[in-house]
């Protein structure tokens, strides 16, 4: 029970991202269809994005917009009140990266389909061997 509380419940975000990552990895390894593999790849990347987003959050934290009251001047900012924005900002870049990887991969899949009229890996391999 102790193990359950300290390792499973308290750190559920880690478990979620591990499960998602494994689903993605499984699809990339085991699926025969190239598009399914691509979807697996995207799940894999998204899992890591979610992991980053989750580590920035804080209990009771709010969005990191510092209020400036007119005439209030500089006042001390209590960082525990705000979630950490840095991992979220990093993930904006990572999302762009994952979109462009996905785009390139889809373009490649189109080229393969135009040539071989199939996206099933085993059929592709036999057709390559025949040609």
């Amino acid at each position: 029970m102790d193990f359950l509380l300290t390792h499973l419940v308290a750190k559920y975000n880690f478990w979620l991202y591990i499960i998602l990552m494994m689903i993605g990895l499984y699809a990339m390894i085991a699926k025969n269809n190239l598009i399914k593999k691509l979807v697996g790849m995207n799940i894999f990347q998204t899992a890591i994005i979610l992991f980053y987003v989750s580590i920035g959050s804080k209990r009771g934290g709010t969005i990191p917009i510092v209020e400036h009251i007119a005439g209030g001047g500089e006042h001390a900012i209590n960082p525990t009140r705000y979630v950490n924005p840095l991992p979220h900002v990093l993930m904006l870049t990572a999302i762009v990266v994952s979109v462009s990887t996905f785009g390139v991969a889809l373009a490649l899949a189109i080229k393969i389909y135009q040539r071989y009229k199939t996206l099933e890996e085993d059929e592709l391999l036999t057709r390559i061997r025949e040609s």
């Binding site: 593999k37 790849m41 490649l108």
Partner: peptide, 17 residues
């Protein structure tokens, strides 16, 4: 054009991992 796209796609999978 016969082989490069598929080789590149395999590289995409591995490279992304």
């Amino acid at each position: 054009p016969a082989r490069a796209p598929l080789s590149s796609l395999n590289y995409v999978f591995m490279g992304t991992i």
